[in-house]
Simulated scan of single mutants.
Amino acid sequence: MKAIKGVDVKDKKVLLREDFNVPLKDHHVADNSRIKAALPTINYLRENGAKLILVSELGQPCGHAITDFRMNPVAEELEKLLNIHIENTDEIFGIDARLAIATMNPGDVLLLENLGFHKTEYENDDYFAHSLADLADIYVDDDFRLAAKERASNVAITKHIPSYAGLLMEKELDQIVNFILNIDHPFVLLMGGTNPESKMPVIERFIEIADYILVAGEVGLTFLKAQGHEVGKVNISDTAVAMANQLMCESRLERNPIIVPDDFMIAQEVMPGSSHKFVSSMDIPHDWHVVDIGPRTFEEFNKRIYDARRVIWNGPVGVIEIPDFEEGNRSIAQAVASTEASTMVGGYDTANAIYKYGKADYINVVSTGAESFIFALQAKDIPAIKVLEK
């Protein structure tokens, strides 16, 4: 992978794609962790004389210009963190944007409007990518979270401009690879969250290596369904169940147990204030929702995590967005932060939980990558990184 460090950027216009998809509250940044993570790359390029043009997505506008997702709050936060003026335009390709770029001096920072306002960005459109490339002399991708997605601003653009990985992109990938290559035992893999079909190949890769594989969320429910049990109101594909069955067979052969939750919190509706209670994994009603792990399951998971020497956690164990149902995630975050094991946490929601509960400083590796993190665990090509190898 070609990295920006060492490349001559003096007096060059550098288009830097960052992950500024931060939570907002009252039109201000509610958590600036992702912006702070980008500062090393931003400062490096400024200190080396680049004219810095920043682009990012914010929210999920899906090709529509939505006022609530404009980049102004990010510009405001960047100004506080960098203690400099940040030029901020409400467009990407218009006259105002081009004039702002033309009048930049080395060390200046310009933040363009939300990439997500353009449908062609999501389509990896070559014309959109070419137009972006025309704004700069060099392109730098520092957004590991979306590296598995083929977007115009991270894949197609590399055909039109010299392209490199930023410091954060390089750091995240190196940390994940090095963590996996240096496994200590006992090694615990905890897989939760949704989309179980995407998680099964990760379990398959580590089934001969992990001493314990803990499964929760929809991943855990898939294994429970594969054992013939009721799992409540959730859609789990036959493909995912077949994959879980195969993995249970392999687990028995390897004598590395896949530990399925013994109890759960269930709720009538997935919404604040809904009636909820704990039940055994054998007693889930067909018309209730599983929303969290139960106390016996946490006790079992907690013991495995504390006894481990290496832990990887991907995917929430419950519904993290609703306070009534987040105790399992809070408790697992505390366990992973407190264990003496080397720890790595990855995935969009999982990383958000670590930051939300103030545990990031106690985790060895925190990756914001969602699908990118899953790809890296599988040693699978990541599209936006693959193009930087050419």
Rank of each mutant, 00 (worst) to 15 (best):
K303A: 10
V290Q: 00
A136Y: 10
G220I: 06
K303R: 15
I207S: 00
H276P: 09
F264V: 08
E371N: 11
Y122R: 14
H276T: 06
S131R: 15
E77F: 02
N182F: 04
P162I: 00
L110G: 05
I4G: 04
A335V: 02
L388P: 02
K159S: 09
S331V: 01
Q334D: 08
G49R: 04
T103H: 14
E123P: 03
L214K: 00
G369K: 02
D31T: 00
D174C: 15
Q60W: 13
N43L: 15
N48E: 05
R70E: 12
D126M: 10
K359G: 03
T89C: 07
I305H: 00
H289Y: 13
H64N: 13
I236N: 12
D238Y: 07
S367H: 05
R205S: 13
S163H: 07
E371F: 08
P323H: 02
M191C: 04
D125C: 04
V74Q: 10
A335H: 01
N364R: 08
L214Q: 04
V291C: 10
G232R: 10
T350M: 00
F325A: 11
E123Q: 13
A38T: 06
N195E: 11
K119E: 15
T120R: 14
S331Y: 12
D31Q: 09
K5N: 14
R310P: 01
D142I: 04
K149P: 05
A370N: 07
I66N: 03
I305K: 00
S281W: 03
I183R: 02
A30R: 01
E299M: 08
L388N: 07
V202H: 01
H286T: 07
A379F: 14
P383H: 11
V155G: 07
G358F: 04
V231Q: 12
I332F: 05
G232V: 12
K36S: 05
L54I: 11
G294F: 00
A384F: 12
N105P: 09
P285Q: 14
L146Y: 13
A333N: 07
A335K: 00
F144H: 03
D174Q: 13
V219G: 06
V215G: 11
E299Y: 08
E113H: 10
P196E: 04
M71D: 02
D238G: 10
N72H: 15
A335Y: 00
V336I: 04
L189K: 11
L82I: 08
E299V: 02
L168N: 11
N235H: 15
E269T: 13
F278N: 15
I354E: 03
N48K: 05
E218H: 09
L111D: 07
S367F: 01
A267M: 11
D8W: 07
E254P: 07
M271V: 12
A379W: 14
A148K: 03
S331P: 05
F301M: 07
V279P: 01
L167A: 01
H85I: 00
T89H: 10
H85R: 15
M243L: 11
A240D: 10
S280W: 13
